[in-house]
């Protein structure tokens, strides 16, 4: 057991624990708390896997942004302290069974696939000799610049140095997502604007 696997185990366990607790917990704010645990642990997993930018983004956007928003919404919409809307036990049992079924499916697909062979096929199809990752983020330090340039339309991780040719990046999706985000935020602001409450 080395440091990586140790921390991986720790954070993976915390992520799963948080997720289960989110499901089990009935109080909204506690759910939010457990969600933080889960998402934060996921961010830590990202750091572990050398996706540091992604981890930071996860922390900033999910934990710092989305969840604060969620809790805000909880506070705005709760009609009493510690809002608690119970679900009928039957439904919980149903959901649990379905969840287990889904888990079974995921696990079975995970075990059922010949990862090694698939990867070799992929490598062969991409014309690579078996080198797994041409961009070795671990040794190259960070992914920040690579991601940034990919979003700008360059792919330095795809062997631009060898071929002298630039691969297409993610400029268009990036633009689309930006515009989408803008539209969504305007829409959300419009939806959530203060309105006179209808007397019902």
């Amino acid at each position: 057991m080395n440091g990586d696997s140790l921390f991986f185990t720790l954070f993976a366990f915390m992520a799963c624990l948080g997720a289960v607790a989110v499901v089990v917990s009935q109080r909204m704010v506690r759910m939010a708390f457990w969600l933080i645990i889960s998402l934060g642990s996921t961010a830590a997993l990202f750091f572990l896997i050398d996706a540091d930018f992604l981890g930071a983004a996860q922390l900033l956007i999910y934990v710092g942004g989305t969840l604060v928003l969620l809790v805000f919404a909880v506070m705005l919409t709760s009609s009493g302290p510690y809002l608690n809307i119970e679900t009928s036990p039957g439904e919980i049992v149903m959901a649990a069974m379905l969840g287990l079924l889904f888990l079974f499916m995921v696990v079975s697909s995970q075990t059922g696939i010949d990862w090694n062979g698939t990867n070799q096929q992929m490598a062969a199809a991409n014309g690579m000799t078996g080198e797994i990752s041409t961009f070795d983020s671990g040794s190259e330090g960070n992914t920040l610049r690579t991601i940034g340039m990919s979003l700008l339309g360059l792919r330095p991780d795809r062997g631009a140095a060898e071929t002298g040719q630039l691969h297409t990046g993610y400029l268009l999706p990036f633009e689309i997502v930006s515009v989408h985000l803008l539209v969504v935020l305007i829409g959300a602001a419009y939806l959530a604007r203060a309105k006179r409450r209808r007397d019902t």
């Binding site: 540091d52 922390l59 934990v63 710092g64 942004g65 604060v68 809790v71 330090g141 920040l144």
Partner: peptide
């Protein structure tokens, strides 16, 4: 010495607010 050090720093510091909200909310 992370390449996105500033980003990580801002991200981590943004967690603080959540604790304060939780404190405020859970105090009843």
């Amino acid at each position: 010495a992370a390449d996105c050090g500033l980003f990580i720093m801002l991200a981590i510091m943004s967690l603080e607010v959540f604790g304060i909200i939780l404190a405020g909310y859970s105090s009843a």
